[in-house]
C-alpha cells in the first residue's frame, strides 16, 4: 500500500506500472503489434508459402507435425496450416474491421443525433437499444444467422447488429455531456446549422471514447466471428477463418493438436492486442481529462 493516492486514482483498471513497459509506451507498442497483424493479413497472398486451398490427400502429406517445410504442420487434407492462418487472419480481421466500422458509424451517428435532438427520435432509439441489449450477445448473433443464413454476410450482419447499441449509447451519453457547453452554445449563436454543429463541434469532442470502444469492439467481433464459425454458423469451409479452422481441427485434437492451438493462439494474440490497445488509449484519455 505504499503508492500515493494520485496513483490509485489514475491507475484504475489498467496495467500496474513498471519499468519494463511504461504506460506511455503502451499505446505505440500495442498499436505497433496491431498494425503488424493487419499488414500480415493484407499481405497474406505474398507471405503465405503455400496455396491455402491446395489439398494433398495422401498419407504422407496429411496431419504433418510442424517442420521446416510446414512451420505449423499440415491439416487433414494436407493443406499448410501456416498459410491458412495467414489467409484466415485476412477473413477474421477483415470481417471484424468491416463490421465494426459499419456498426460504429451507424451507432455513433444515431446516438449523436438522438442525444443532440432529443424528443421522440431519442426515445425510440433508446428503446431499440434496450431491446437489442436485452439479448445475450451470442444468442442474438445466432438468432440473426438463423434468419440471414450462415456465411460471411450473416456473420457480418450479426456482428454489426450486436455492436451498434454500445456505440449508440456511448455517443448519446457523451453528447448529453457536451451539448450544453459554451462552445456549442457559441456555434448556435453564430447561426451554425444543427448538422454543422454536430459534425464540427460535437463529433470531434466525443470521438475519443468512440475510438477506444472501436478497439475493444474489434476484439469482441473477432471472438464472435470465431465463436460462430467454430459452431459451423459463420464463415464456411474451405474459406479459412480462425474459428472454422479450430472447428475442423478439433476432430484431430489427439493426433494433431496444432490444428486447434495454432489458430487459437492467433485469436488470443489478436484479441489481447486490441483489448490492450483499447485499455491503453482509455487510460491516456482519462489522464488527458474530459473534452
Amino acid at each position: 500500500m505504499a503508492s500515493s493516492t494520485h496513483e490509485f486514482a489514475t491507475d484504475k483498471i489498467g496495467w500496474p506500472r513498471g519499468r519494463w513497459l511504461r504506460w506511455r509506451h503502451r499505446v505505440p507498442a500495442s498499436f505497433g503489434v496491431a498494425a503488424v497483424l493487419v499488414l500480415v493479413a493484407i499481405g497474406a497472398a505474398w507471405l503465405a508459402p503455400y496455396n491455402p486451398y491446395q489439398e494433398h490427400v495422401t498419407l504422407r502429406d496429411a496431419l504433418q507435425p510442424p517442420s521446416l517445410h510446414h512451420w505449423l504442420g499440415t491439416d487433414q487434407l494436407g493443406r499448410d496450416v501456416f498459410s491458412r492462418i495467414l489467409f484466415g487472419g485476412r477473413v477474421s480481421l477483415g470481417l471484424g474491421i468491416f463490421a465494426v466500422s459499419i456498426a460504429a458509424s451507424l451507432g455513433s451517428a444515431s446516438g449523436l443525433f438522438g442525444g443532440y435532438r432529443g424528443g421522440w427520435w431519442d426515445h425510440a432509439l433508446m428503446r431499440v437499444v434496450d431491446a437489442l441489449q436485452a439479448f445475450p450477445t451470442l444468442i442474438l448473433a445466432i438468432g440473426i444467422t438463423a434468419v440471414i443464413g450462415t456465411g460471411v454476410v450473416g456473420v457480418t450482419v450479426a456482428i454489426g447488429v450486436v455492436t451498434i447499441p454500445i456505440f449508440a449509447r456511448l455517443a448519446r451519453a457523451r453528447v448529453l455531456q457536451v451539448r450544453t457547453l459554451d462552445y456549442v452554445e457559441a456555434a448556435h449563436a453564430v447561426g451554425a446549422s444543427g448538422v454543422r454543429t454536430m459534425a464540427r463541434c460535437i463529433l470531434p469532442n466525443v470521438a475519443g471514447p468512440l475510438i477506444v470502444q472501436a478497439s475493444v469492439s474489434l476484439s469482441f467481433a473477432i471472438l464472435i466471428e470465431a465463436g460462430l464459425s467454430f459452431l459451423g454458423l459463420g464463415v464456411q469451409p474451405p474459406t479459412p477463418s480462425w474459428g472454422n479452422m479450430i472447428n475442423e481441427g478439433k476432430e484431430f485434437l489427439e493426433q494433431a493438436p496444432w490444428l486447434v492451438f495454432a489458430p487459437g493462439g492467433m485469436i488470443f494474440v489478436t484479441v489481447m492486442t486490441f483489448n490492450f490497445l483499447g485499455d491503453a488509449m482509455r487510460d491516456r484519455l482519462d489522464r488527458a481529462g474530459p473534452a
Binding site: F8, P16, G18, A226
Partner: peptide, 25 residues
C-alpha cells in the same frame, strides 16, 4: 495488497489473459 509489485503484475497479466482467451480454445 501488493499493488505495483510483481504479484500484482502477474495477477493483472493473468486476468487480461483470462479476458482475451477464447473459451473454446
Amino acid at each position: 495488497r501488493h499493488h505495483g509489485r510483481w504479484l500484482d503484475r502477474m495477477l493483472t497479466a493473468g486476468s487480461l489473459v483470462g479476458v482475451s482467451f477464447p473459451g473454446f480454445v
